[in-house]
Design a protein around this nucleic acid. Sequence first.
DNA 1: CGGGATCCAATTCGATACTG
DNA 2: CAGTATCGAATTGGATCCCG
Lengths: 138, 138
Amino acid sequence: MSKYEKSCLIRGDGGRAIRGILDRIGDKWSLLIVATLDDSPLRFSQLQTRVTGISQRMLTRTLRNLERDGLVSRTAYAEVPPRVEYELTATGRTLIGPAVTLAEWAVDYNPEIEEHQAAYDARPDRPGRRVTPRDGAL
Amino acid sequence: MSKYEKSCLIRGDGGRAIRGILDRIGDKWSLLIVATLDDSPLRFSQLQTRVTGISQRMLTRTLRNLERDGLVSRTAYAEVPPRVEYELTATGRTLIGPAVTLAEWAVDYNPEIEEHQAAYDARPDRPGRRVTPRDGAL
DNA sequence: CGGGATCCAATTCGATACTG
DNA sequence: CAGTATCGAATTGGATCCCG
């Protein structure tokens, strides 16, 4: 694949492809949930235990979105107490590959990037520097 | 790589790796800019032309973040009128691979996912359905 | 030309309380 | 147990004006 072809693939129709996937899994929890479900199907409460720090509301909302996308299936058993199991669909499992690629990149380059950030923040002449902190500068 | 190893890679230290990269490039414009710069170095105004729909402010902000991360380099030439060129760094170029993988997945599965969304939205018994629209349901 | 400053709208997320 | 309802805080993105 040529460099130009790559760029076109990513930028696609005004970036629709990438935009779509990021709208889908670019949020705080989706990818984490997908990765967690890759081990095995889990119940709601098990998910909440394993995905550290997620609130009940965000777990529900994120699962709904993933279900709507067809990446996760939801099975409710008519029992008392109620039991609901979440599982990756076939499509959902195809996402693991790209996610792993991304995670490997993150693991490989995060140290370097964090160093660069620290160096950048220490520059006294960096653009937009001011006395009072702003937006996401610090 | 085993399924468990993959999951651990993604979920890492409570998902720090994935969280980090998504904080970095999970926003609306970063990946688009990186892909655009993969073709060739570009000036600010050229970028704004090529990255459809981006505002001046967001282009500036996103470029600053990418620069801070060490993914993009900024070179200002002391000319009149001023000229500033942005270019992918070596580290920035390493991001193209994972980004392409993700974009390929998006291209492959977006149709299927959009179909599933439509079917899900048409279900009269979908969870959380109500008379008045809410949050991001529609 | 390449931004910075400011203001505003929309969205995201979390905490809390309540329910079948 | 597995959610839903509601609120408010924080973040994100866009429009506009201004400046060297």
